[in-house]
């Protein structure tokens, strides 16, 4: 187990280097940079050119690419994400609270999505081809086909404006969290329900489950202990993959619900060309994603020790 985790960690090394390299390349490839944007359209060219030069030097932009990359990597190794080009505030300060917000939203959506999705999937598989199954699977198709913010606007209009049950805006309380996580959770549950169902069906059809049933073991015990354990493997993989989308990818939902997470900031940073913020966000969400998938793989190991490392 320990050696598995260690080897698994070793695999992360090239991925981390790759992520560093790509974030750096993104900055290099974007035609205009934050500094010229900061001063674009200003009144006196000489004064803005002077200020531009100061900031360029501060961010080592006047150095060759290789030197810039060196500064970039050493800063990150020291745990320093730099300061925003636009506001010159430490990136960690700008990202920190937003990252917590995004995590809150991601976990709440994940919780709603998993409970709703996996639950529906199991029941659907158990009561296959019944009214519940057909309805649940049809509804989940709707979930897959709905543009996210469309659902968001409807949720706000219904729960906040019509029913007045929940606040439209807030500062991160659970009441504020409920609607955006419901929005993301519903969409997530749609795909999870379908995967859980088909995976459950597959497992229920396997030899040892049939044997268990034939032996007269308690039906519920068979389904929930033996079958579920195995059926959950692919579901966990999908959850691991979905975390990537929830981290930083939910900017539309964050915008619609005025939920201030990193996705919203990332979009602004890309448009401002503020490469330090962009890099910081991408790094932190990539790191979380990699970490989450590490945990997923370890979970696998725990559930099914036959799983071996490959590729």
């Amino acid at each position: 187990m320990i050696s598995y985790i260690l080897r698994r960690l070793l695999y992360l090394l090239p991925v981390c280097i790759g992520i560093l390299l790509v974030t750096f390349l993104i900055k290099a490839a974007i035609p205009t940079d934050a500094v010229s944007m900061l001063y674009s359209g200003q009144l006196t060219e000489e004064t803005s050119a002077e200020a531009e030069a100061i900031i360029r030097a501060e961010f080592h932009l006047d150095q060759p690419a290789l030197v810039q990359f060196f500064y970039y990597v050493t800063d990150i190794l020291r745990g320093d994400l730099g300061v925003s080009v636009r506001t010159r505030e430490p990136v960690i300060d700008l990202i920190g609270y937003r990252y917590l917000n995004t995590l809150k939203l991601a976990f709440a959506s994940l919780a709603i999505g998993v409970i709703l999705g996996v639950g529906t999937g199991i029941i659907s598989a158990y009561y296959k081809d019944t009214f519940f199954d057909v309805t649940a699977m049809t509804v989940s198709l709707f979930g897959l086909s709905m543009p996210a913010f469309f659902l968001g606007i409807l949720l706000i209009l219904f729960f906040c404006v019509e029913l007045r049950w929940l606040p439209v805006i807030g500062d991160g309380s659970w009441k504020h969290l409920l609607l955006p996580s419901l929005n993301l959770g519903l969409i997530l549950s749609a795909s999870l329900a379908r995967i859980t169902r088909s995976s459950m069906l597959e497992v229920l059809d396997l030899e040892y489950i049939r044997t268990a049933r034939a032996k007269g073991l308690n039906e519920r015990l068979v389904v929930f202990k033996h079958a579920l354990k195995n059926a959950l493997l692919p579901v966990i993989t999908i959850i691991g993959l979905q975390i990537g989308g929830l981290l930083g990818g939910a900017f539309i939902i964050e915008n619609v619900f005025a939920w201030h997470g990193i996705g919203e900031l990332a979009v602004k940073a890309i448009i401002w060309r503020d490469f330090t913020i962009t890099q910081g966000i991408i790094l932190i969400s990539a790191a979380t994603y990699v970490l989450a998938n590490l945990v997923v793989d370890i979970l696998y190991q725990v559930i099914d020790p036959r799983v071996r490392l490959a590729g």
């Binding site: 920190g96 917590l100 790191a287 989450a292 945990v295």
Partner: peptide, 18 residues
């Protein structure tokens, strides 16, 4: 246990929030 671990680790990774 592991879900709690995800929460904890990523929470710690969140640096010092403003």
């Amino acid at each position: 246990l592991f879900l709690a671990a995800i929460l904890l680790v990523t929470g710690l990774a969140a640096c010092q929030p403003a």
